[in-house]
Amino acid sequence: MDSNTNMQDLTRLFNDLTGWTVVQIALVVVLSFGLYQGLRLTLPRVAEHLPARFRLLVLNLIPLARLTLFAVAVFLIIPLVFNVTLKNFVLVLGGLGVALGFAVKDWATSAVAGVVAIFERPYRSGDWIRIGEDYGEVIDIHTRSVKLRTADDDVVTIPHARIWTENIVNSNDGEKTLMCVAEFMVAPDKPTGGIRDILTDVACTSPYLDWSRPVVVVMRNEVYATRVRLKAYPFELRDQFVFITDLTDRGRDALLGAGISIISTPEFGMENNGPNA
């Protein structure tokens, strides 16, 4: 008797699954998937030809398109398979909850975090972020994970679920530039007059500089040296490493040229260190 009732419930839960229904479902899945893959291939190509401000905008359409296409596909498929009533809705939701809770808990956690990430935006495509020890450009945001390309050209896949437990450091937060820092350790017992002007000039003569942003020099005394940090912004995110290299390279030469001693680790605390001492 019970098994008959359960069988009737199930019959009422599902619609008749005809061949045409299967074809319709397949069509929706194939079209959604095809459209998503098309956008995934096309948009980054288009974005590569755009300035940073538009590139980030276009890249961020991809996760939004995925979510929209997924929602549309689900919205179209559910009435084909299920007999949509409130009772059935609660029944399916309960079953889905159990399935997600046991079978694909980790995947579901990451997927939900992925949806949250789309709206809360701790990272977007094209952003430069640090999660744990990994720092790189967000190149793809999937349902479960985010992909970073590091400066060493490694691709790191990180599950979205990390946003529940870890701090996400976003260097540009959707902006077209980010702060770069070149560090110098100078001898604390030598005059450092003019060091700020010298390093400001170095930044202001860099071809990578975003003129509209400030250039700042910060100095701090430490045990064995004075740490000098030159902070400036490049106009293109992807130039950050070559910009820091340029600041470091020319900054070091300019400091040495001005008779300012730069300390290297083995010489910490020693007198007469540096080539111009």
Partner: peptide
């Protein structure tokens, strides 16, 4: 125009 499209100041 070329520089504008390339994002230069």
């Amino acid at each position: 125009r070329i520089l504008s499209e390339a994002g230069f100041p």
